[in-house]
Design a protein around this nucleic acid. Structure first.
Length: 525
RNA sequence: GGGCCGUUAGCUCAGCCUGGUAGAGCAGAGGACUUUUAAUCCUUGUGUCGCAGGUUCGAAUCCUGCACGGCUCACCA
């Protein structure tokens, strides 16, 4: 179905025809003033600095009254985001990657001729232009470029939902009828980014976070790798996969649900410290903290264990927070809470956390049925929810229902049930418990780590236990992974973290969709 | 999947309770204006009121179903 043009769009198409008829290319292949280009923020900074060099206060005021400005010629390019057009003079504001700058054109020897002015005042919000001239400051103190020459760089046909902005006395900006409908913003992220600068800032922050994580790991001898996204056997987590098919090989393949089993194969191969940042895919529900595809960091380090990984995680998070949240000294706000990521993390045994928040000591109920009975007796969960859950899943349920939301400041919980941790090493002398931790901040789970199981016989048993469970999220047996492990895998600590959730935390966004450029939505119509 | 709320002009919204087939601001169009900055002043157009049924003489409005979305609960170790 082809696009039905609105009346405004038809007007602009007619304008486009007039532009072409005048011999002007509305989509020129290159700029004319690229060599002279200044970013908008740099132009503002430069002219304000020039003003400050004037010897006397009176001279500075005189400069703005006469609005002569400095004598150097520069050029700016960007999108028109505001227009104030008068009979023979006109102001437009353009926005580029650095910010906004006001342009001033008038009919006169110091600016443009009448024909050029007519075309200038005919510009629309959303058009891209370049303009060349000198910088000056208006009597209201606004850094401005006086247009001596200009060109259209790209004509906008559909009106962008550009909001009007009013500068408040306190310096803040009040925005009128901003583009806010979440569905429209996600479906048309291009328009969202174009008119909401703070959205662009989220994704700059996201890139900074990932860069800081890379730098941290690179500087500690980790090798970044890429492993298969299309996998013949999925594993490394408990989740339902997406299934696809290779036609020529006539083979079903799965989109990976985790990188874990491939990265640990590399430890067998002698890569002692390895990490990957990439996309995982899980065929499950969407929520404020779940998207079907999401970005994960996993690292594995030979000769580390769960506690040394805990130390490294703490250091990594502090480093990233200081780097990304330099302005606030590593503090962030999230879901209404002030969170300090530079403080040492609390470390609590899962058992103690559940004892504190759910008032049940699961260690007193060593088998599944006694724990289930106690949970029902204490009315912690309704009986129908308890049915069919293993002991580990019951404990995990208590964690999710009673503990997680209370873990606001950075906290590690450790010592997890074995049956929900099929790839983690058992704790010495405590076969029901594994050496595992999860990190929580702001009431959500952020990361997960363990002393990785490197005993191929134990691992085989775990796979068999999983398959017996009949869980549709159980990990399938991966014979090749066991074959790798039989060659000998060094003891190692592994770690996984959701980058999207970390970005939510560091940018104070309550929804994962705000930190994904193109979040999953149902198809239109 | 459940609950609640929403869907009206390009954007932000009012109108719905109490049915008489649609409004405001901004954006747009025409005019005035050579330092404006939510520019101002005059004139002016704009809609399958999410979709499909039903009730009614008459539905944006009441009813039912559906679609899409938001929040939330469940699920997601």
């Amino acid at each position: 179905m082809s696009h039905q043009y609105t009346e405004v769009e038809r007007d602009r198409l007619a304008k486009l025809d007039r532009i072409k008829a005048a011999g002007i290319d509305p989509y020129p292949p290159r700029t004319r003033f690229g060599d002279l280009r200044l970013m908008a923020a740099e132009a503002s900074r430069r002219i304000l600095a020039w003003q400050a060099t004037l010897p006397e206060q009176a001279d500075q005021e005189r400069a703005t009254t006469l609005h002569t400005g400095d004598s150097s010629v520069c050029a700016v390019m960007g999108r028109i985001v505001a227009r104030r057009v008068m009979g023979k003079a006109s102001f437009v504001s353009i926005e580029d990657g650095s910010g906004r700058l006001q342009l001033y054109a008038r009919v006169g020897p110091d600016s443009v001729d009448a024909a050029s002015f007519e075309r200038f005042r005919d510009l629309d919000l959303g058009d891209f232009i370049e303009a060349k001239g000198n910088l000056f400051i208006t009597k209201t103190g606004e850094p401005t470029l006086r247009v001596a020459d200009w060109s259209l760089l790209s004509k906008s046909i559909s009106p962008l939902p550009i909001a009007k902005e009013e500068k408040q006395p306190d310096g803040s900006v009040k925005r009128y009828s901003a583009f806010t409908d979440p569905e429209s913003r996600y479906r048309q992220r291009y328009a969202d980014l174009a008119v909401n600068p703070e959205v662009r800032e989220i994704f700059r922050m996201r890139a900074r976070i990932i860069r800081a994580l890379r730098e941290f790991l690179d500087s500690r001898g980790f090798l970044e790798v890429e492993t298969p996204i299309l996998q013949p056997i999925y594993g490394g987590a408990a989740a339902r996969p997406f299934i696809t098919h290779h036609n020529q090989l006539d083979q079903d393949l799965y989109l990976r649900i985790s990188f874990e089993l491939y990265l640990k194969r590399l430890l067998v191969g002698g890569i002692e410290r390895v990490y990957e940042i990439g996309r995982d895919f899980r065929n499950e529900g969407v929520s404020f903290k779940h998207n079907p595809e999401f970005t994960q960091l996993e690292f594995y380090a030979a000769y580390m264990d769960v506690f040394s990984v805990m130390d490294l995680t703490e250091e990594m998070m502090q480093t990233v927070a200081r780097e990304v949240l330099a302005a606030t000294g590593g503090k962030t706000r999230f879901r209404g809470h002030e969170i300090d990521l530079t403080q040492p993390w609390q470390r609590i045994k899962l058992r103690d956390a559940i004892l504190q928040h759910a008032e049940i000591d699961y260690a007193e109920f060593p088998d599944r049925d006694s724990l289930a009975a106690a949970i029902i007796a204490q009315k912690l969960m309704p009986p129908e929810v308890v049915t069919g859950k293993t002991r580990g899943k019951l404990i995990d349920g208590l964690l999710g229902d009673f503990v997680e939301k209370n873990l606001i400041q950075p906290t590690f919980l450790y010592d997890y049930p074995r049956d929900i941790s099929p790839l983690a090493k058992s704790k010495a002398g405590d076969p029901a418990t594994v050496e595992r931790f999860e990190g929580f901040v702001g009431g959500i789970e952020l990361c997960n780590a363990f002393s990785e199981l490197n005993d191929p016989l134990d691992q085989e048993q775990r796979f068999l236990e999983e398959m017996r469970g009949g869980d549709d999220e159980a990990q399938p047996m991966d014979e090749d992974y066991l074959r790798a492990m039989r060659y000998g895998m060094p003891p190692n600590g592994g770690f996984g973290m959701g980058i999207d959730r970390l970005t939510m935390l560091l940018t104070n966004n309550d929804s994962i969709r705000e930190v994904l450029l193109f979040p999953h939505l149902r198809k239109e119509e």
